[in-house]
Design a binder for these strands. Structure first.
Length: 722
DNA sequence: AGCTTTCAACTTTTT
DNA sequence: GTTGAAAGCT
């Protein structure tokens, strides 16, 4: 969903503004489309008696369909008449889930919306495993490992210091798990020696996870699927609980998610899958379009409904998008159209090199922004996005924007939860929940340093694995004194006692106002602030780390509930949770989305991260052969790969509402020398008319400004949109 | 030999 | 801007 919808809506309400007329799309984006649904949307919402696949083209109002369908399911009728708790809406990101709930609130009220099960696939998996995972031998407080933990375990399991190699294992193992293979099956399927090694590492990895009572992200999908498949009782329980399941971004599901879904909906098959095969861009991480293909085969009664009206982009932009994507083989036929007018032609911008490209992009942004001032509402910085294939392309744009004093944000940078200091604290939180979580134990006991070194820990680890207990359990074992000196044992016991005490307090401290002091006390006890300043020469950096820590504390406190001062001064009483309760959910949440302040800035984003978003003005950067479509040295360009790259281009084009610039580099910097840049084949595939492509931009802008000014003056006030 | 410095390269990403 | 590798220095 767009970050602009709300403000644009306000803009429409403040009617009579020339900007509404000048850019018809402003009046009617997918976000604030008319109150009624169009025929196809209505059909999708009203189809309640069986499985439904909604092929939601870009900007066709898919979130509207999902939320309206939820509302419909709450009303009476066959297939409907459900309680909110019987409806599940599954997304891929926490952000999407949060937005979905907000939209649902607006439609059915907060009381009902809060009872809906709106969550990510992984959060659903956690819920299922916490409730019923014991049937798989998993204790309810199992730990969830993040990818760093996994990497660490793999390095150890494979006895390597080669991080690159471990990362390749991690990658391979994850793909195997996504396909539902265990280590034994993987070993059988292995194609070469590398894969055979990976499979053997995987076997040891599996053992460790079991010993740690820990699961990785892939397990959060595959274990629930396994459980539901094997255990009739659990399966019935969940199938009865969830009477209708809606899935967002269905094209991004992997094989395991398909199985999980199938088991969740059961024979009744009451589900609504919403997706777009043309926007499938995550094949490289296991998503498979087979899931779209299989749906009508597995569910012959499946109702397929394409949403083809686009409420986002002008016809010129949509035509370019359609032309590109039409070259891909089609799973389902659909052609997007819009009635938002022809709009400004898609512009191809030739650039000498990367620097020049950045300059031109900045100039373009300033030009468009300046061009609308005066007569109407000026374009905001947040109306612009620069999209690119690879993260490293952002840097040069950052420089140029900084130089021009234009505020910006880079989306998809390092996440708050990836920062070392936050991971340190998360390790403690995880250890509170599950003391057998050895990776968390190791991190917590060594951060900050407390005189327990690798010798002591090595001995402890050896002891633990010998007796098949966790390191924490080994802490207090009597026979430990055989291998360790009294001083080391004293330190270990001190740590163990502190953790036990902290756990006890965490269990009984509830609500934001009590949890925060507890956390502050804890940080003081372990000397964390001092640790940050000790470990960092740069004082400013240490200070910023400490600020992150404080953000983290506030964030946890807020989640522990009690009286919350919500936005707008309204106070809201929520259920109080103990620190331990909050700690249980931490691993799953990775973005601190609540940190605001970053409004009205230009967005820099990868094409992948831009999916689902929209901006009035979009610049696609570096649309060259080799970059988009991306070509790697050692992998050949298969048809499937090219098709996914083409979909990426399609996603990029369809982010734009009003204007779209496609940049081509004439020369690319490769190391120190320049190499010739070849325009991407996708440029030609857009089939833009020659005349509109290469017109002198300054002439064009002049013409446009004149046109806008004339229209702005002649437009009658408050006239409804044609 | 082990350390530092310089130089170049750099898919896409969520949970 | 960061990381990894290779060259150069002590």
């Amino acid at each position: 969903m767009s970050a602009h919808g709300g403000r644009r809506g306000a803009c429409t309400i403040l009617a009579g503004r020339p900007v509404v007329r000048r850019f018809p799309a402003f009046a009617q984006s997918a976000m604030n489309a008319p109150a009624s649904l169009n025929a196809a949307q209505m059909e999708a919402v009203q189809h309640l008696t069986g499985p439904c696949l909604v092929l939601a083209g870009a900007g066709s109002g898919k979130t509207r369909v999902i939320t309206h369908k939820i509302a419909r399911l709450l009303l009476s009728g066959p297939g409907a008449d459900l309680a909110p708790s019987q409806i599940a809406a599954i997304t891929f990101t926490n952000k999407a889930a949060a937005e979905m709930r907000e939209r649902a609130k607006a439609l059915i009220g907060a009381r009902s919306a809060n009872k809906l099960l709106i969550c990510t696939f992984h959060a659903l998996g956690v819920k299922l495993l916490r409730e019923d995972g014991e049937r798989l031998g998993l204790k309810p407080q199992f730990s969830i490992l993040d990818s760093d933990d996994v990497l660490g375990i793999l390095r150890e399991a494979g006895a390597t210091s080669d991080a690159q190699l471990a990362r390749r294992w991690q990658w391979t193992i994850s793909l195997w798990k996504n396909q539902g293979l265990n280590s034994a099956q993987a070993e059988g399927a292995a194609q070469n020696d590398d894969e055979r090694v990976a499979a053997r590492v995987m076997a040891r990895y599996e053992e460790r996870l079991a010993a740690y009572q820990a699961v990785d992200f892939d397990d959060l999908i595959s274990l629930p699927a396994k459980l539901l498949e094997r255990d009739l009782e659990t399966r019935s329980k969940w199938q009865n609980q969830l009477r209708h399941v809606l899935v967002d971004e269905y094209q991004d599901t992997n094989a395991q998610q398909y199985d999980l879904l199938k088991l969740l909906v059961g024979e009744r098959a009451m589900f609504t899958a919403v997706g777009d095969d043309d926007q499938s861009i995550y094949g490289w991480r296991g998503a498979t379009l087979d899931n779209l293909k299989r749906l009508p085969q597995d569910y012959p009664q499946l109702k397929v409904i394409p949403l083809e009206q686009n409420y986002r982009s002008t016809s010129a932009i949509l035509r370019a998008a359609n032309n590109v994507i039409s070259l891909n083989p089609k799973l389902y036929q659909k052609t997007l159209w819009s009635d938002l007018g022809e709009g400004e032609p898609v512009r191809v911008v030739d650039c000498d090199n990367e620097e020049h490209e950045a300059e031109r992009a900045v100039a373009r942004i300033q030009g468009i922004r300046g061009g609308t001032t005066g007569s109407g509402a000026p374009a905001e910085w947040s109306d612009f996005a620069i999209l690119y294939r690879a993260n490293h392309q952002a840097r040069i744009f950052e420089q140029a924007l900084r130089k021009a004093n234009i505020p910006y944000k880079v989306s998809g940078g390092q996440s708050f939860f990836d920062r070392a200091e936050i991971k340190d604290l998360c390790a403690w939180m995880r250890l509170l929940v599950n003391q057998d979580d050895d990776p968390a134990f190791l991190r917590a006991i060594t951060t900050p340093k407390r005189g327990i070194g690798h010798t002591t820990l090595g001995a402890l680890g050896e002891f633990a694995s010998k007796w098949k207990v966790s390191m924490f359990e080994a802490l207090f074992a009597d026979s430990l004194s055989a291998t360790l000196n009294a001083r080391a044992i004293g330190s270990l016991h001190e740590f163990g006692r502190y953790l036990n005490d902290f756990e006890h307090r965490a269990r009984h401290t509830m609500g934001a106002e009590d949890v925060k002091p507890l956390l502050m006390e804890w940080l003081k006890d372990i000397g964390y602030e001092q640790h940050l300043y000790d470990g960092e020469d740069n004082e400013k950096l240490a200070a910023s780390r400490w600020t992150n820590v404080m953000d983290f504390v506030d964030w946890i406190a807020k989640r522990s509930g009690g009286v919350i001062d919500a936005t707008g001064g309204m106070t809201e009483e929520t259920e109080k949770k103990s620190l331990l309760d909050v700690a249980q959910t931490i691993s799953l949440i990775t973005s601190l989305a609540e940190r605001g302040g970053d409004t009205n800035v230009v967005t820099l984003s990868t094409l992948h991260a831009a999916k689902g978003l929209e901006w009035p003005h979009v610049v696609l950067a570096g649309v060259n052969e080799g970059l988009l479509p991306f070509k790697s040295e050692d992998e050949e360009m298969t048809a499937a790969r090219l098709e996914e790259e083409r979909r990426l281009m399609y996603v990029g084009i369809t982010r734009a509402r009003l204007t779209l610039a496609v940049n081509v580099l004439k020369r690319r910097k490769r190391g120190r020398e320049f190499v010739a840049g070849i325009p991407s084949r996708f440029i030609g595939e857009m089939k833009l008319e020659e005349s509109t492509m290469r017109e002198d931009p300054r002439e064009k802008l002049k013409k446009l400004r004149a046109e806008f000014a004339a229209r702005a003056q002649s437009a009658p006030k408050d006239a409804p949109q044609a």
